[in-house]
Amino acid sequence: MISIRDFSREELEYIFDVADEMESIYRSGTDVLRGKILASLFFEPSTRTRLSFETAMIKLGGGVVGFAEPDISSVKKGENLADTVRVVESYADVIVLRHPLEGAARLAAEYVNIPVINAGSGAEEHPTQALLDIYTIRRELGRVDSLNIGILGDLRYGRTVHSLCIGLTNYDVKLFLISPELLRLRREFLEEVKKKVEVVETDRLERVIDKLDVLYVTRIQKERFADLAEYEKVRGAYRVDLDILQRAKESLIVMHPLPRVEEIDPEVDYTPHARYFDQVRYGVLVRMSLLKLILSG
C-alpha cells in the first residue's frame, strides 16, 4: 500500500466496512494475527501514526518490531533503504515505513516480497491518514458524497492533504482549498483532483465557511516562510475559533490530522464541531482493518 491512488472506491468502502467490524474487537482484542510480525520502520519521528499502527497490530494479536529514531545504527553506518528493507523482510510479515524522502515506500516495495505500507513519504503522501480521514467523514456524517469539504492550511507541503485530496476524488464532493498563495496545492495534485471533482481555491476561510460540511485544518509551519513578517500576517487568518464557527453550519465537523499547535483554538474542542480526537480512534480501526485484510485476507 504505497499510494492512495492504489484504491478504487469499492476497495475504500470495503476497508471501511471491515473497520466498522473492528469496533468490537478494538475493545476486546483478538488473536487473528497471532505469530505475525509488523516491522515498524520510522526514519522520521512520529507519535500518532506509529502508535496507531502498533496498537492496531497488538489488538489483532500480532507482534511488533522496529525503530522510531532516525538515528538508528544501520542508517548511521550508511546503509541505504533498499538494504534495510531486505534485511527486515526476513524478520517480518509486513513493513510499515515512514521516511523523509518522496517515493521511498515505492522503492522499498520493489525490493521486498512482503507488503509495504506507506506511513508517510516526505511531503508526498500519507495514504493511511487519508483512509482514516475519509472514514471519519463517513462515520460522523453518514456519507461522503455530495458534501462540501474545506481543506485549510499548508496544502503545498502537507502530505496528509495530498493523499486526502486524491482519496476524495473517488466521491462526488466539492473541494474548497483554503490557503495562502504560497502554500497552495502542488500542481501535479491539483490537476489530478480538478479532473474528477469541482475545486474552489481561495485564501479566505470566511468567504466559504458557511458552505462547508467538513473543515479539515492543517498546520501552517513558520519555517515555510522566508519572511517571518509574511507568516505573522497570514497566521491569524487561518486560525479556527469560536468567532469564525458562528458563521458555520450547525452540522459542520472540524477535523485535524494532529499535532495541532495554534491553528484551532482549544475552545473549539468543547463544541459539537470538533472531531479531531475521534479521528485518532478511527485511525486505529482503519489500520486494524488494513492489517487484517493484508495479513489474513
Binding site: 541505504n80 533503504l81 533498499a82 521516511h99 524522502l101 518522496e102 515505492r106 522503492l107
Partner: peptide, 13 residues
Amino acid sequence: PNPMCVTNANEPV
C-alpha cells in the same frame, strides 16, 4: 528534479 525524491539519494535505483 525533486531534491527530495528517493532516486536522488544513495539508493540503487
